[in-house]
Write a protein that binds this DNA or RNA. Structure first.
Length: 365
DNA sequence: AAAACGGGGTA
DNA sequence: TACCCAGTTTT
């Protein structure tokens, strides 16, 4: 047992998290679900979704047989809907290609959609006790500080180094040592995650209570604030758009976005160029007679690659309007829906915010 | 306003 | 393989 893993395992037993809903199970399906939900989403947010999801889809077959729309409805509000789509796709692969049994080892797990190297390793560790290295954002931060790794961890060279570290530091295979602790790989893996989430945090790390404080290069050199080094900055282009809140008899119009590009396949408010005049635009595009309603504040939504300034435009649709379509448009799927129902389908977060905000300010309709 | 975050897609 | 992309929250 090397001292690094020994320290972490013993820390985990005393100070780690032990009562998360997906701990204390060996069901690979439940563990898989938790790992996917935990990508890019914090524990506290995940828990209620995780429990609801498992109730509705208790096993992989139930999930595979369900319509995608039902899956995305359960996912609604969690964001990153491609995770939900991949989850559903993977469930169908498991039922179609693996007789409905969750793949029994890391190599096969990793071939499923939505599962990369780190996620596959985490599932294999917690479900099967396989001895595999994980390397998620938390682990990268812990390692970058502890070993004083200079340079952006996403860079190829550093990433290779980090993966090598991650594998070297694994507790030794069970059955080989005298002080082998049972469940070592699980406790070790959980320790790395918990340490990154609760102690070795991005800002204000709690170094005085860290089990690695004696080893940590960043701490010794007073560089915890400098490591890991941030991703190189790029200038963000700015774009602007108008989102139309078309109201008609208490319903609002949503459109399905194209599968590729921003907000792919999500339900969204109709978009209009800022240069257009809303009344003209709606006549042309939808064949609707509309009247502008109360002004709303523009706000920014930041993507990784650009900043989008959104101008919300509420519009009252004359009930006499023809609502079945305008001229020359490709057929985009669209639906009138009550704002309450809209919040239950897969919508991007700025649209969600807008609906909540508008619903709070005005009674819909 | 910046940083993070893990996987997918494409050249 | 080496890029670049997407979507959202936290700090």
């Amino acid at each position: 047992m090397n001292s690094f893993s020994a320290k972490l395992i013993s820390w985990q037993k005393q100070h780690g998290r032990h009562d998360l809903p997906w701990q204390n199970t060996r069901d690979p399906y439940a563990i898989w679900l938790s790992e996917i939900m935990l990508q890019q989403t914090q524990v506290g947010t995940v828990i209620p979704y995780y429990q609801r999801f498992l109730q509705r889809f208790p096993d992989v077959t139930t999930l595979a047989l369900a319509p995608l729309d039902d899956v995305l409805a359960q996912w609604s509000g969690l964001g990153y809907y491609s995770r939900g789509r991949n989850l559903h796709r993977a469930a169908r692969v498991i039922v179609g290609d693996h007789q409905g049994r969750f793949p029994g080892n890391e190599e096969i797990i990793r071939q499923l959609p939505g599962i990369g190297r780190s996620t596959a390793a985490a599932i294999a560790v917690f479900a099967y006790g396989e001895r595999r290295a994980i390397l998620d954002g938390n682990v990268k931060r812990v390692f970058a500080r502890c070993f004083g790794i200079d340079g952006y961890p996403g860079e190829k060279r550093n990433e290779t180094l980090l993966w090598r570290k991650a594998e070297e530091l694994l507790p030794p295979p069970s059955g080989t040592g005298e002080n082998q602790i049972d469940g070592g790989i699980e406790a070790y893996t959980q320790a790395l995650m918990d340490l990154g989430a609760t102690v070795c945090t991005r800002g204000k790390p709690k170094c005085p209570i860290c089990p690695l404080q004696a080893d940590c290069i960043a701490l010794r050199e007073n560089r915890t604030g400098k490591l890991p080094v941030p991703r190189p900055r790029k200038l963000l282009p700015e774009k602007e758009t108008v989102l139309l809140l078309l109201m008609r008899q208490g319903m609002i119009l949503l459109e399905k976005r194209p599968a590729s590009g921003v907000w792919g396949s999500l339900w969204c408010l109709p978009e209009m160029p800022v240069s257009a005049i809303s009344t003209d635009y709606c006549t042309q595009r939808f064949g609707m007679n509309v009247q502008p309603l109360a002004q709303m504040q523009p706000f920014d939504h930041t993507f990784t690659h650009f900043r989008l300034r959104i101008h919300p435009q509420p519009l009252q649709v004359a009930s006499s309007s023809c609502v079945t379509g305008g001229k020359g448009q490709e057929r985009v799927e669209s639906r009138w829906i009550t704002p309450d129902e809209a919040l239950k389908v897969a919508i991007p977060s700025p649209v969600r915010k807008l609906l909540i905000q508008y619903g709070g300010a005005q009674p819909f309709g």
